[in-house]
Design a protein around this nucleic acid. Structure first.
Length: 287
DNA sequence: AGGGGGACCTGTGCGC
DNA sequence: TGCGCACAGGTCCCCC
């Protein structure tokens, strides 16, 4: 479920249970997710205090007082469940989010303060890693990663410079985490719709005026999505239901065949495949 | 060197 | 009801 807004929503849901707390126990129920867990994964985490829970792009970063950071990625299907007051629960009281199959509970953290945090990931495209905080920015996960789209560093000039000269379609360029961090298939489609740019347009032809429209549109669509995710945080914290991902009203994503929502356009939303992934766009108003 | 396509997994929904 | 196929929010690796 994870593009930047979803990961940020997860971060906000996990922070109260994890930030400032000591990790009392860790259980990794299999040797790997997408990648093998780091050596002595559980031992290196046990007893460590989580200083803060941060996010970079689609990654969650739990900085520890051991000098290491727990780096987590949700992949396509990763999700966390938080149960608070576990000590008060009796056997059988376990509350599970609908649609979450316990067979795919791969990592369980017991936190000081009584919370139990469970990572569930059916497809196992997610992963966890332990990285020295001193070398975090230059580690394999973050080296070369583009700016945070909601930071001041990401503006029209920065985006324009990153797109200049690129022969790839703008769709592919915006999915490239080196151009800007955190965008995925949904929000790229949505940002391109808002700016009336065709996903097929070559990135280099969007440098300049179109990039100047894109940068603020990307910030807006992400900000709105985070606000919508935040609305369902209560559900998340109580481990009931998902994050309201599909409660969000996307203008074009998943709306193949529908009439373009742009007032007065009258075009039709088409689905087509670019570099193996679905794009959704209006053929009339997006150029 | 940059970019496209396949691989990695499991689950779900659809048409037949 | 059952089967096969297409498809799903991401990233890495290989090959051109």
């Amino acid at each position: 479920m994870p593009e930047l807004p979803e990961v940020e929503t997860v971060r906000r849901g996990l922070a109260p249970a994890m930030a400032g707390r000591r990790i009392l126990a860790v259980e990794a129920r299999r040797p790997d997710l997408r990648f093998p867990f780091p050596e002595r994964f559980a031992e290196r985490l046990t007893g460590a205090r989580v200083a803060a829970l941060d996010r970079r792009g689609k990654y969650l970063i739990a900085g520890l007082d051991t000098g290491e950071a727990l780096v987590m990625h949700l992949g396509m299907s990763g999700r966390f469940t938080v149960e608070t007051g576990v000590n008060a629960l009796r056997p059988g009281d376990f509350v599970r989010a609908p649609g979450v199959d316990a067979r795919h509970d791969h990592v369980v953290f017991a936190l000081e303060g009584g919370a139990r945090v469970t990572f569930n990931d059916p497809r196992r495209f997610g992963f966890m890693d332990l990285v020295a905080i001193a070398g975090l920015d230059s580690c394999a996960h973050f080296r070369g990663m583009g700016p945070e789209p909601l930071s001041e560093a990401f503006d029209a000039a920065a985006l324009s410079a990153a797109l200049a000269g690129k022969r790839a379609p703008i769709k592919a360029a915006l999915l490239d985490q080196k151009v800007v961090a955190g965008l995925g298939n949904i929000y790229v489609c949505e940002a391109l719709f808002r700016t009336r740019i065709s996903p097929r347009r070559l990135a280099r032809s969007t440098a300049g005026a179109r990039a100047a429209r894109l940068a603020p549109a990307i910030k807006a669509v992400l900000t709105e999505a985070i606000a919508a995710g935040g609305a369902s945080l209560k559900d998340f914290a109580s481990a009931e239901g998902g994050l309201g991902y599909f409660q969000l009203d996307f203008a074009v994503y998943g709306r193949d065949g529908e009439t373009c929502p742009r007032l007065g356009c009258g075009g039709r939303i088409a689905r087509f495949v670019q570099s193996g992934r679905s794009s959704f766009a209006c053929g009339r108003c997006q150029r």
